[in-house]
Design a protein around this nucleic acid. Structure first.
Lengths: 224, 224
DNA sequence: GGCGTTGTTGTGCAAGTGTATAAATAGCCT
DNA sequence: AGGCTATTTATACACTTGCACAACAACGCC
C-alpha cells in the first residue's frame, strides 16, 4: 500500500512539544556527550545529536550560536560533573583525615567514576587540549583544583601523624597521589573486567599510604 | 600580467618523484599522525594528510584501501614506537634490578616520552577504544605487555631483597607501578612546564620504591 | 633512445556537513 | 475562543568529505 493511501502521512509535519529552555539545553548537551562518546568528535554531527535529543537539527541553532559553542558547553558540563563527584567524597566531616583520604581514593576508583563512557569523553576532549588553548586552560584549572584538594587532605593526614612536611614535600606527595589515582582510573576504565570489585580501590589505598609512609593499619584479621 | 603569459604555468601538471613504496607508506603514516595530533581525528582529512605528505589526495588510495585502514596503521605505528622506546630502558644488562627499575621509570618520565604531541595522539585514539573493538584489543595487548615487563622487574627487585611475594602481591605491585607511571606521564604531558626537569622522574622513583617498601638509598650527600 | 609499467596527478561525483531562513504550530494571555 | 509569539520543523545552500577513474609522466628495461 502506498503512503498516499494514508492522508495523514502526506505532508504531515512532525508533532512536537515545547520544552523549557533549560531543559532543552540540557537535553542537547546530554545528546552531544552521548554522540561524542559513541562516535567520537568526528561522528558527532548536528543531525546525530538532534536525532538523539529527539528534535531536528535546525533547533540546535536556536539554542547555540554554532556547533563549536555546543561542544564547549558540553565539555564544561562534563568537567563540572566529574570534579563535583570527586570532591563530594571529601565532604565527610566526622572522619579522621586518613579515613577521608581512603574514602576519596575509593570514590575515585569505583562506579560511577570508573566508567568507560566518561573516560572516552575525557580522552576525546583532552586529546585536543594541545591544539585548543581554551580546552587546555579548562583542564589546567580542573587539575590544579583537584591537586590542591589532595594536598590539603595530605597535610591533614600527616599533621595527624605529628609529621611536619615542608611545602615541596607536600607538593610531591600530592603529585604522586594524583598520578596514582589517575593511572588506576584509566586502567579501570579501559579494562574494568580485569579487576574484581574493590580491587582497584584497595590497590590505590595501599599505594597512597605507602607513598605517605603510613604504617599499615592493624586489622582484626591479623597482620602480615 | 595574466598567467597565460607564462606558457609553463598553463596546464602545468605538477612535477613529482617516485619514492619507494616503504618510504611513501611511512611518509603517509607520519603525515597522518601529524594531522591527527594537530587537528584531531575530525580534521585529519585525506586532503590535509596528502598536503602534509607532499602528495595529492588520490595517491593515498594507491597505498591504502581506505581512510580507516590508514588510521589503523597509523595507530599501530604509534603504539609500536611508544612501547619500543619504553622497553628499551629495561635492556641494561649490567645493572642491579633496582637500578634497572629506576632507569625504566626515568625513561618513561623524561623526553622524548613526555611529549604533548604523542599524548594528544594517544588520547585521541584511545578515546575511541570504547566504541572500536579493534582499538580496544590493540590497547589491551600493549597494556598487558607493558605490565608484564613491570611485573618481571619487580620480581627481580624483590628477589634481590630476599623477599618472596606471592603472585597476587606481585600483580598488585605491577598495577600500582603502572598507574604511577601513567599518571605522572599524563601530568607531565599536559602541564610539562609546571615541573622542573627530572622532577617527575624523581617523584616517580620515590613513589615506586615506596610502593615496593624499599628502604631509601643512602646518598653521599646525606639523608633526611 | 624508445617503450611499457605503474606511481602519481587531476577531476568528477554522490553523500554528508554546518549554517541560514522561511514556514508552521504549540502554548500562553486576554 | 482567538490571536501572538517564540519554539520547532523543514528546506535550501555552499562547502567539504571520501572515493572512483582517466590521463599523465617518471623510471627501469630493452
Amino acid at each position: 500500500m502506498p503512503d498516499a493511501a494514508d492522508p495523514a502521512s502526506m505532508n504531515a509535519r512532525r508533532k512536537f512539544r515545547r520544552e523549557g529552555e533549560e531543559r532543552r539545553r540540557q537535553d542537547l548537551i546530554d545528546a552531544t556527550l552521548d554522540s561524542v562518546a559513541e562516535h567520537g568528535l568526528e561522528g558527532a554531527t548536528l543531525r546525530t545529536i538532534a536525532l538523539r535529543a529527539g528534535v531536528t537539527a535546525g533547533l540546535i541553532r536556536h539554542y547555540f550560536p554554532g556547533k563549536e559553542d555546543l561542544l564547549q558547553e558540553a565539555y564544561a558540563a562534563l568537567m563540572g560533573r566529574m570534579t563535583e563527584q570527586a570532591k563530594a567524597a571529601l565532604a565527610m566531616e566526622d572522619a579522621s583525615p586518613r579515613q577521608r583520604l581512603a574514602a576519596f581514593v575509593t570514590a575515585n576508583l569505583d562506579a560511577p567514576i570508573i566508567d568507560q563512557r566518561v573516560f572516552s569523553l575525557w580522552a576525546t576532549f583532552i586529546g585536543r587540549a594541545g591544539a585548543d588553548p581554551t580546552l587546555a586552560r579548562a583542564h589546567r584549572e580542573g587539575y590544579l583544583g583537584f591537586r590542591n584538594e589532595v594536598e590539603a587532605v595530605v597535610a591533614e593526614v600527616l599533621a595527624a601523624e605529628r609529621r611536619k612536611p615542608d611545602a615541596a614535600e607536600l607538593r610531591h606527595h600530592a603529585i604522586a597521589i594524583n598520578a596514582i589515582i589517575d593511572g588506576l582510573w584509566i586502567e579501570g576504565c579501559l579494562a574494568g573486567e580485569m579487576f574484581s570489585p574493590g580491587e582497584l580501590a584497595a590497590i590505590g589505598i595501599k599505594a597512597v599510604e605507602a607513598e605517605l609512609g603510613l604504617a599499615p593499619l592493624e586489622l582484626k584479621g591479623g597482620n602480615q
